[in-house]
């Protein structure tokens, strides 16, 4: 992984990708530009979700945490008049703080119990939004959320400009998340996933590291929520319900979570299938059915996720046997 040739290839690939992303909005129609903005936000959401899954626990509350970021940022800017860029940061921090608090009850559970426990905690938060009209706006939620302030002549009302803003924020966040995974902390997260008893026996405080992963993941989920809220200008409890969470889960599992790029491939591929291809074909009523069939086919024929194609492709192109895929590096489905 560390030889200079691979590093150069990675850099060339990354720069090409960046260039592609920069010209992308110019090639799209207006509605597709909007889809592109949401796609970028969802990339951050699903990659932050993967950080959480590194420790081996799958949460069903991640979208609600994103909502905490969205609600908090909207409230800070709308009711307290905090400038939007700062309120976004505060919103993300609120999401992180929520995770710290939720860690205490939730990390007593494991596996399916954690899955459902996190779902219940998320539902409680969502019902609080729904029940309290002040300050959360009840079932109708909040609207007229201040948008991102213009910088000079650049108006962020335009999806293209907001796309570039999101691209910058998300790229920086992804870089941080990537570095975290490669750091000592990231290695500990992997250790917790595979051998939590062993890790504990050599002195790793498993609770504290799980909490750290959860908090970091929630911070970035909250940031994606804040990006969402100040673009669309309105948030409501239904936007963050379990159905949306199921989509995040689908993106992560269909893409695969063993590699950093797996979930990104998942969200990009499935968004293109659902929002671009099927919409263009015009099957509005039977779109969910085709999507469902795609899901079943993908888990049946690619149980390791879309990410597993790339090592295979690489092997094909190289025409020789390289070491088996990156499986050993990171999280497998528990």
């Amino acid at each position: 992984m560390s030889d200079s040739k691979t590093t150069i290839t990675v850099w060339i690939f990354a720069l090409t990708l960046l260039a592609g992303l920069l010209v992308l909005p110019q090639l799209l129609s207006y509605s597709q530009r909007e889809i592109a903005v949401f796609l970028i936000i969802n990339v951050l959401l699903v990659v932050s979700y993967r950080l959480m899954t590194l420790t081996g626990e799958w949460s069903l509350g991640h979208v609600v945490i994103m909502g905490v970021g969205a609600y908090a940022s909207a409230l800070f800017s709308k009711r307290l008049g905090v400038p939007v860029p700062l309120s976004m940061f505060l919103g993300a921090s609120t999401a992180g703080l929520t995770a710290v608090v939720l860690s205490f009850p939730l990390f007593r559970m494991k596996g399916f119990y954690f899955l459902i426990g996190s779902f219940a905690a998320g539902e409680v938060i969502r019902l609080i939004w729904k029940y309290f009209t002040f300050p959360f706006g009840g079932a109708k939620g909040l609207n007229l959320i201040p948008s991102f302030p213009d910088i000079g002549w650049i108006s962020f009302f335009d999806p293209v400009n907001y796309y570039y803003l999101c691209l910058i924020v998300v790229s920086v966040s992804l870089f941080i998340l990537y570095r975290v995974e490669r750091s000592r902390f990231g290695l500990t997260f992997h250790a917790l996933h595979w051998q939590d008893k062993l890790a504990e026996s050599v002195g790793v405080n498993t609770f504290r590291y799980r909490m750290l992963a959860f908090t970091l993941a929630s911070f970035f989920a909250g940031l994606s929520g804040a990006l969402y809220a100040h673009y669309i200008g309105t948030v409501n409890p239904t936007r963050f319900d379990v159905e949306e969470m199921v989509y995040v889960l689908i993106w992560a599992i269909v893409g695969g979570t063993a590699t950093f790029y797996g979930p990104i491939v998942g969200v990009v591929a499935l968004t293109i299938v659902n929002d671009v291809l099927l919409r263009a074909l015009g099957f509005d009523t039977i779109r969910p059915m085709i999507y469902g069939a795609v899901l079943i086919a993908s888990v049946l024929f690619m149980p390791d996720g879309l990410e597993s194609i790339f090592p295979k492709l690489k092997r094909l192109m190289m025409g020789r046997k390289t070491e088996p895929a990156t499986k050993s590096e990171a999280g497998e489905i528990p």
Partner: peptide, 23 residues
Amino acid sequence: ALRDNPLGGLIASIGFLLILQTV
């Protein structure tokens, strides 16, 4: 086919759910 793959089974059943709803 997905007996040892609980998350895969979850996703497949979500796919089936969407199909049943559409029907």
